[in-house]
Nucleic acid binder design. Structure first.
Lengths: 243, 243
DNA sequence: AGCAGTTCTGCGGGAACCCGCAACATCCCC
DNA sequence: GGGGATGTTGCGGGTTCCCGCAGAACTGCT
């Protein structure tokens, strides 16, 4: 077994190293990296069949690293090992996981025992091991009623970036009304009914536009990290637009 | 010396324990807790002169814990030990630190050597030890030109919570135009000039209201955690308003 | 007192936004 | 081919927002 580990926190990294050494007797090689670029480079120079990834690393998300790895070798088994159950990451993962790929998702707060089980399950037994809590979020996100569709998610991103309706329309190639329509269904999904707050005396307390952002951020549908990445994508689109 | 440590990540916690044991020979007592409530309770039942706090813990921020501790015993020496340099936390700290209090702020990413130095500096030599990076943010926040005034910060909070102008006016006890005026100066401070994006052909690309939120979040002036706390304060104000 | 700096206020107009209504266009499934 | 679900588009009007102008209040400093 050849194992690659990417984790920026040095304590967590050496912890993973210890547990891996403890769990597997047949480790042909183990490589440790502290960021996404390092992981991708390491994977290019030598093939690994098992990978442990921290989501939330400087510069590059674990999700992006996984995407690059799976693009090169779809059979690679990946265990995601993260701090929180941010919906932003979970959505990203379920979007890039290949058809029959083996992967796992476990939280850092879980006891060591569970981590060992996950390592065994994903890397040896080749089964998907998803933490209960994560599973819950994943299911909600996939649910047609409570989760956001791809289009609604796009609208949310544009909204959080601070675009106007007109700009959204231009970016997504729809009419102005089309963009507004997407916003409307987004508001509905996020639960922005008029009677949210029991009818205050000084009129409507919430501005749908900004309230939607507030809800998205507190629920973790989008986080500051994802926002920074989306900002970059917006900028590159902007410069491409002006040929 | 009597030392209290609050840190939710168990790896980091035991690391702190080791380093503290390693650094100080005269430890009369050391208590470890994994959340804010535990720390406050521990501090009530037995006096400590030195405290290490993680910001960003579940339910209660290290900032709130520090506030409670300093309210009870202003001479307590506190070392903040955090992941990132979120302006949200730094602003909170500088707001609650008593006149002549001794404290320090060091990042988890710093090498062990620096942590030891900070422990010595704050707890023994009784000097303030602030990480360079943090110091930079702190200074920018205090600067009249680039940093936000208290009023502008309030406006930002209300904005990010999704309130309407009218609701802000009601909450802050100013006229409608007053609230809008605060927003205007906020926009200006955040750098929302009209020519931000080089004059796109399809009109103004950014909605000031949402763009301001975007900038605040990516810069870390406000984070999801702080937002959730502010949300609670808003709700309690709301229910108080309707007696 | 005088003066600068900051904040609050009303007024008014132009722009942006929210959304109900109604008409299509797809696509899928029975 | 007839529902059904989903997504797009135009129209219209009521609301909210953004902001320039100008005056008033309040601070701290000389």
């Amino acid at each position: 077994m050849r194992l690659l580990i990417a984790e920026d926190d040095k304590l967590h990294r050496s912890f993973l190293e210890d547990v891996a050494n403890d769990t597997f007797a047949d480790l042909a090689e183990m490589t440790l990296t502290s960021d996404g670029e390092g992981a991708i480079e390491a994977f290019k120079s030598a093939q690994y069949d098992c990978v442990i990834l921290d989501l939330q690393m400087p510069k590059m998300t674990g999700v992006e690293v996984a995407k690059s790895i799976w693009a090169r070798a779809p059979a690679t088994k990946i265990l995601f090992w993260s701090n929180y159950t941010e919906e932003a990451y979970i959505r990203g993962i379920t979007k890039i996981v290949p058809a029959a790929a083996v992967y796992g998702y476990i939280l850092k707060s879980a006891p060591e025992e569970q981590l060992k089980l996950a390592l065994q399950g994903v890397f040896v037994a080749e089964q998907c091991v998803i933490d209960r809590e994560v599973r819950g979020v994943q299911q909600r996100a996939g649910n047609r009623l409570s989760g956001l569709s791809e289009l609604e998610y796009e609208a949310l991103v544009d909204l959080c970036l601070g675009l106007t309706d007109k700009a959204m329309a231009a970016r997504r190639n729809v009419s102005l009304r089309g963009a507004q329509s997407r916003l409307q269904s987004l508001y509905q999904k996020l639960g922005l009914e008029k009677g949210d707050i029991p009818s205050s005396d000084w009129g409507p307390s919430f501005n749908s536009r900004t309230r939607a952002i507030s809800i998205a951020m507190t629920r973790g549908i989008l986080n500051a990290d994802a926002l920074r990445r989306e900002e970059e994508m917006l900028m590159s689109w902007l410069s491409a637009k002006s040929h």
